[in-house]
Lab assay of single mutants.
Amino acid sequence: EIRVRVEKDPELGFSISGGVGGRGNPFRPDDDGIFVTRVQPEGPASKLLQPGDKIIQANGYSFINIEHGQAVSLLKTFQNTVELIIVREV
């Protein structure tokens, strides 16, 4: 597990896919977790996150067994800083 802090400027600078009942993700199709799919170059998350990172927690909210829409809404709700716990396959 890796813990990262992303400062919104003005957005977080990454996209996610997956989630329960979602269209899945390109990295682990059998896993309904939330995965980072795109990281904006030079964006707030560019040095912190990589495509394929699985987000398991954001600001204390579990991202395990969460629906895609709910994950997106939560990330939009947070002000300024988001603390993520991620799992990265090496």
Rank of each mutant, 00 (worst) to 15 (best):
E1P: 04
E1C: 06
E1S: 07
E1A: 05
E1K: 15
R3G: 04
R3V: 12
R3T: 12
V4K: 00
V4L: 07
V4P: 03
R5N: 13
R5I: 15
R5Q: 10
R5L: 15
V6Q: 00
E7N: 14
E7Q: 12
K8H: 06
K8V: 11
D9F: 05
D9T: 13
D9H: 11
D9L: 05
D9I: 02
P10A: 04
P10L: 05
P10T: 06
P10E: 05
E11G: 10
E11V: 08
E11F: 06
E11K: 12
L12Q: 04
L12M: 13
L12H: 10
G13P: 10
G13E: 00
G13L: 02
G13D: 02
F14P: 04
F14M: 01
F14T: 00
F14D: 06
F14L: 03
F14R: 00
S15M: 10
S15Y: 07
S15K: 09
I16D: 00
I16C: 06
I16F: 10
I16Q: 02
S17W: 05
G18K: 04
G18D: 04
G18L: 02
G18S: 04
G18C: 05
G19R: 05
G19C: 03
V20M: 08
V20H: 11
V20T: 14
G21M: 07
G21T: 07
G21I: 06
G22T: 11
G22R: 10
G22C: 09
R23P: 08
R23T: 15
R23G: 14
G24H: 08
G24S: 08
G24C: 07
N25P: 11
N25L: 07
N25K: 05
P26N: 10
P26L: 10
P26A: 08
P26M: 12
P26R: 10
F27C: 10
F27N: 06
F27Q: 09
F27E: 10
R28V: 13
R28S: 14
R28W: 12
R28K: 15
P29G: 11
P29R: 13
P29A: 14
P29C: 08
P29M: 12
P29T: 13
D30K: 15
D30P: 06
D30V: 09
D30S: 08
D30Y: 08
D30T: 11
D31A: 05
D31T: 06
D32P: 13
D32I: 06
D32Y: 08
D32G: 08
G33H: 06
G33E: 01
I34V: 07
I34M: 04
I34N: 04
F35V: 05
V36W: 04
V36T: 01
V36R: 00
T37C: 11
T37P: 00
T37N: 13
R38S: 15
V39R: 00
Q40W: 13
Q40I: 10
Q40H: 12
Q40A: 14
P41A: 08
P41W: 06
P41K: 11
P41L: 06
P41I: 08
E42R: 11
E42T: 10
E42S: 15
E42W: 10
E42P: 03
G43V: 05
G43I: 02
G43M: 06
G43K: 11
G43E: 04
P44Y: 04
P44A: 10
A45V: 07
A45C: 14
A45N: 06
A45E: 04
A45Y: 03
S46V: 13
K47P: 09
L48F: 15
L48N: 15
L49F: 03
L49E: 04
L49P: 00
Q50N: 12
Q50E: 11
Q50D: 06
Q50C: 11
P51L: 09
G52P: 00
D53V: 00
K54C: 05
K54Q: 07
K54G: 00
K54Y: 03
I55S: 00
I56S: 05
I56L: 10
I56V: 10
Q57A: 11
Q57M: 11
Q57S: 15
Q57W: 09
Q57L: 06
Q57G: 10
Q57I: 05
A58Y: 01
A58L: 02
A58F: 01
A58H: 00
A58G: 08
A58E: 00
N59V: 01
N59E: 07
N59I: 01
N59F: 01
N59A: 05
N59R: 01
G60A: 08
Y61E: 13
Y61N: 10
S62L: 04
S62H: 05
S62V: 04
S62K: 06
F63I: 01
F63Y: 04
I64Y: 10
I64N: 10
I64L: 12
N65H: 10
N65K: 10
N65P: 04
I66M: 11
I66H: 01
I66G: 02
I66D: 00
E67Q: 11
E67K: 14
E67A: 12
E67R: 14
E67H: 12
H68L: 12
H68P: 06
H68R: 10
G69P: 10
G69F: 12
Q70S: 11
Q70A: 14
Q70C: 11
Q70R: 15
A71K: 03
A71F: 01
A71L: 01
A71S: 02
V72A: 14
V72G: 06
V72C: 14
V72I: 11
S73E: 15
L74H: 09
L75G: 00
L75E: 00
L75M: 09
L75V: 02
K76N: 14
K76P: 01
T77K: 12
T77Y: 09
T77F: 05
F78W: 13
F78G: 09
Q79M: 11
Q79D: 13
Q79L: 09
N80F: 07
N80Y: 12
N80I: 06
T81L: 06
T81K: 08
T81E: 14
T81F: 11
V82S: 02
V82K: 03
V82H: 01
V82W: 00
E83N: 12
E83H: 06
E83P: 00
I85Q: 12
I85A: 10
I85S: 12
I86V: 12
I86P: 00
I86N: 03
I86R: 02
I86G: 00
V87F: 14
V87S: 14
V87Q: 15
R88Y: 00
R88Q: 00
R88H: 04
E89H: 07
E89C: 06
E89V: 07
V90Y: 09
V90D: 15
V90F: 13
V90M: 13
